[in-house]
């Protein structure tokens, strides 16, 4: 209700140049924008899209890792993986809450995910056929996510920035845990080393694609930079990730599936071969290995849980009615 009121108030002043200028001055001064503050409609829409996509990614991301909870190779790994997937669910929950401060309901957002209207990170459309994939998701996917998300801790929108601080803390723990899984495999038997190498071959390029299209082709960057929703370009973040990750992989004795990967002494950066953006576009379009499967798994859980949610609601209503009746009787 409150959020609706906010929207109406905002629309009345949508074109007010004075409000826009004041908003931009606050952003420029690194002040946090809070839910009650005036904000341009485009800013609100961009944040709703980005935060909800992020929340959906956490929820869909539970599936590829969840695939190994019942088969984790030791009790310690089983507990750690279950706790990790639980963390992802927790991230989803408070990201949905952050999105709700912008006047959309969680039900609405979930509906968008289930109908395929909303997107989530394409990385989760890749499968986890081996245990090593669990290590790779932690090391590479969470590693890439952290690169993307650390700057978001300074995002101009307060609730998102604060949610990201907590998310980043947990993600960096997951990343170390993932690296440790890969390290154990890399130091293990020949079969374990092969498992790790095969998983790296599968995940390396999709992980690089997580930073999004090259700056030359990215649509939203300039405005989002001005609004301080985004602080670094896709290519800059990708480069940071590669520079941090390649030496770790070499330390483990693994080979990156990129024959053109080389260190440039002059720039101090690792240079990589061309990214196959046609694959990226295919998977975003829905033609990845697991797109249909992931969405169907979410739809199935939602449909099968409908009677439980209905029961909870019905019970809450009965309780409230009984309480009200008791109050009337007492009076």
């Amino acid at each position: 209700m409150y959020a609706q009121a906010l929207n109406v108030a905002e629309k009345a002043h949508a074109d007010d140049p004075e409000l826009r200028a004041r908003f931009q001055r606050r952003v420029d001064a690194e002040e946090k924008i809070e839910p009650n503050d005036w904000m341009p409609e485009g800013y609100r829409r961009t944040l709703v899209r980005q935060i909800s996509q992020h929340a959906h990614s956490e929820i869909v991301g539970m599936l590829p890792e969840g695939n190994w909870i019942t088969r984790a190779p030791s009790l310690k790994r089983k507990a750690a993986l279950l706790a990790k997937v639980q963390d992802e669910g927790g991230h989803g929950l408070y990201l949905y809450s952050a999105a709700e401060t912008l006047g959309v309901s969680r039900e609405e957002l979930v509906e968008q995910l289930l109908t395929g209207k909303a997107k989530y990170s394409s990385i989760f459309n890749y499968p986890t056929p081996s245990w090593a994939d669990i290590g790779m998701i932690g090391w590479l996917v969470d590693g890439a996510a952290i690169m993307n998300q650390i700057p978001l801790c300074r995002c101009s929108y307060g609730p998102y920035a604060r949610a990201m601080i907590r998310v980043c803390k947990e993600e960096s723990f997951h990343q170390r845990q993932g690296f440790e899984i890969v390290m154990t495999l890399a130091k293990g038997s020949p079969a374990q080393k092969t498992m790790a190498q095969q998983a790296l071959n599968r995940w390396w390029w999709p992980a690089l694609m997580m930073f999004g299209p090259s700056d030359r082709d990215s649509q939203h960057s300039d405005q989002n930079m001005a609004w301080k929703i985004k602080r670094f370009s896709n290519d800059d973040l990708r480069q940071k990730f590669i520079d941090a990750t390649v030496p770790q992989g070499h330390f483990l004795g693994l080979t990156f599936p990129d024959p053109e990967l080389r260190f440039n002494e002059a720039t101090g950066h690792w240079e990589h071969g061309p990214i196959d953006w046609s694959e990226f576009n295919r998977v975003v379009r829905g033609e990845g290995p697991c797109n249909r499967e992931r969405l169907k798994a979410r739809q199935k859980a939602h449909a099968e849980g409908a009677w439980v949610r209905e029961a909870a609601l019905a019970h809450a209503e009965k309780r409230a009615a009984r309480k009200a009746a008791a109050k009337i009787a007492a009076e």
Binding site: I59, Q86, V308, R309
Partner: peptide, 19 residues
């Protein structure tokens, strides 16, 4: 219980069952 992880009727229950 861990078999439910990611498939519970609602997100809150995903967390509770995992707990």
């Amino acid at each position: 219980l861990s078999e439910w992880c990611g498939h519970a009727p609602m997100l809150e229950e995903d967390l509770a069952l995992a707990n």
